[in-house]
Design a protein around this nucleic acid. Structure first.
Lengths: 104, 104
DNA sequence: TCTATATATAGATGATCTTAAATACGTCTA
DNA sequence: TAGACGTATTTAAGATCATCTATATATAGA
């Protein structure tokens, strides 16, 4: 919920967590679904990363019987990005120049 | 450079680095300027963080005599945010409906 | 209640990160 | 060239993190 850029950075600063986020994007999955997809990561590790994402406010949870379903909080993610741009890229207009690859 | 969300996350996942980014936002500063402002951080630590930001493509450098001047690469930062939103918040329109009320 | 299943937590370990002190490097000026 | 100054790198210590195994908690069904 915080939209704190440091906390947001820490939350996304891990390859496994971003794999989880990618899997959760636009669909709801339970822990065992995620463990099945991330076949090289143990269940406790998946749960651990989910707790970190939850703590950062980037996922929502819903219990259904024995399973715990997770979804991405897209609006929260977008909001963190808005804060970052407002703080560190205030001169950039997000509307245009979206796809222009202006990088060294 | 890369616009890799994991690398971007690692780069911003530190309070000191974001303090540096805030100081560099919209103005050019050399290392000793930054050391003066961040009065609780040593010069080698500041230099170290600047290297991390540089490696992530978030700052540009310009040498002028003995000093090395740093600037924020706002476009690169905005681009990383665009990638993150595209990947993890595709249903959200970054432009409107932000934290600030946008009266149409 | 007991058992099975799904998820979370605890503890341990190795890797990575932050930091400062000491030192090296690069540039200017005399 | 020598010395001063600004910045970068090296080294090492302490902290944090990702990951596993083992175990605990929670829920459903018999």
């Amino acid at each position: 919920m915080s939209s704190d850029p440091v906390a947001f950075g820490k939350a996304i600063a891990d390859e496994t967590r971003q794999r989880i986020m990618r899997l959760l994007c636009c669909r709801e999955l339970c822990v065992s679904d995620l463990v099945t997809e991330l076949r090289d990561i143990s269940q406790p590790t998946v749960s651990h990363h989910l707790q970190i994402l939850k703590q950062a406010g980037l996922v929502d949870t819903r219990r259904e019987g024995k399973q715990m379903y997770y979804t991405l909080r897209q609006e929260a993610i977008a909001n963190c990005c808005r804060v970052i741009v407002r703080e560190y890229a205030p001169d950039v207009d997000l509307v245009d120049a979206g796809a222009s690859p202006q990088t060294t």
